[in-house]
C-alpha cells in the first residue's frame, strides 16, 4: 500500500481541516484555509483522507434497540415506610444518646453514696490528733472540709462522715469508681449503668444508620424489562 501521508500537513492547519469538513470554521478562518489549500498538496491530501474517514464513519448503520427502555416508577410503599422508620429511629436514638452524654458530662443523674477515695483510710484520719483544716483534701470530692470544735481539734468532715469500708454495703465495696456509670457527682455511682447504656446506644445508632442506608437503596425506580 502506498502511504500517501508520509509528508506531514502544515501543523497549524490540522485542526482547521477537520473543522472545515464540518463547516465549523469562523468567518476569517475559512477563506484563509481555502487560500492555503490552493497551494499546499499535503494539506489537500490530509483533507481528502479526513473526508473519507468521516464518510466511512457515516456508513455505520443505525442500530435498533432489541428492547424498549421505558421505565416504571414503582416506589414500593413498604420500602419507603421502612426507610422512614429507620431514619426516624436513627435520629431518635442519636438524640437520646446525646442527651444521656450531656447529662453524664454535667453530672445531673442521681447517684448513690459516694464511695471512699482509695487514698484516705479512716483509721489514719481518726488517729490524727489535730488536723490542719484542709480545703478539698478528698480527691474528686466536693470541697466541704471545715474546722469543727471537737476536742479542741479540727476534723476533716469529709473523712469523718465517710463510713469505713467494712460498713459499706457489699455492692458499694466491690464496685470501683466509674464502673456502672461515670460519677456524675465525683466519687459517687449512678443508680443506673450510664456507661453501658451509652455504649449500647452507640451500637444502636450505627446499626440503625446502616439499615437506613440499605432501606434507602431499595427506594428507586424499578426497571421494566
Amino acid at each position: 500500500m502506498i502511504n500517501i501521508f508520509k509528508k506531514q500537513p502544515c501543523k497549524k492547519n490540522q485542526e482547521l481541516l477537520s473543522a472545515y469538513i464540518d463547516n465549523q470554521l469562523t468567518g476569517t478562518e475559512k477563506p484563509a484555509l481555502e487560500q492555503h489549500l490552493k497551494t499546499c498538496g499535503v494539506c489537500n491530501n490530509e483533507l481528502t483522507s479526513l473526508q473519507t474517514t468521516k464518510r466511512m464513519l457515516k456508513q455505520l448503520p443505525v442500530a435498533l434497540p432489541r428492547r424498549s427502555f421505558t421505565v416504571t416508577a414503582s416506589r414500593p410503599v413498604a420500602s419507603t415506610s421502612i426507610f422512614g422508620i429507620f431514619r426516624l429511629a436513627t435520629l431518635a436514638t442519636a438524640v437520646i444518646l446525646l442527651l444521656i452524654n450531656a447529662g453524664d458530662f454535667f453530672g445531673v443523674y442521681p447517684s448513690t453514696v459516694p464511695s471512699a477515695p482509695p487514698q484516705i483510710s479512716v483509721p489514719e484520719v481518726v488517729e490524727t490528733p489535730a488536723l490542719v483544716p484542709t480545703r478539698g483534701s478528698g480527691q474528686g470530692r466536693p470541697d466541704i472540709s471545715m474546722p469543727l470544735p471537737i476536742g479542741g481539734s479540727t476534723v476533716d468532715v469529709g473523712a469523718v462522715v465517710t463510713p469505713a469500708p467494712e460498713n459499706l454495703p457489699q455492692s458499694a465495696q466491690q464496685s470501683a469508681p466509674g464502673v456502672g456509670g461515670a460519677a456524675g457527682e465525683p466519687g459517687g455511682q449512678y443508680l443506673w449503668p450510664v456507661r453501658q447504656v451509652e455504649i449500647g446506644l452507640i451500637f444502636m445508632v450505627v446499626i440503625l444508620f446502616i439499615l437506613t442506608l440499605v432501606a434507602r437503596k431499595k427506594v428507586y425506580v424499578k426497571v421494566k424489562r
Binding site: 500500500m1 502511504n3 501521508f5 490540522q14 485542526e15 481541516l17 477537520s18 473543522a19 464540518d22 465549523q24 483522507s49 479526513l50 473519507t52 474517514t53 468521516k54 466511512m56 464513519l57
Partner: peptide, 20 residues
C-alpha cells in the same frame, strides 16, 4: 474541535493499517 480532529486522525491511521 481538537478532540474531533485528533480522533479522526487516529481513526484514519487505524483504518489505513487495515488497508487490505
Amino acid at each position: 474541535r481538537s478532540r474531533i480532529s485528533r480522533g479522526r486522525q487516529h481513526l484514519r491511521d487505524y483504518l489505513l493499517k487495515q488497508g487490505e
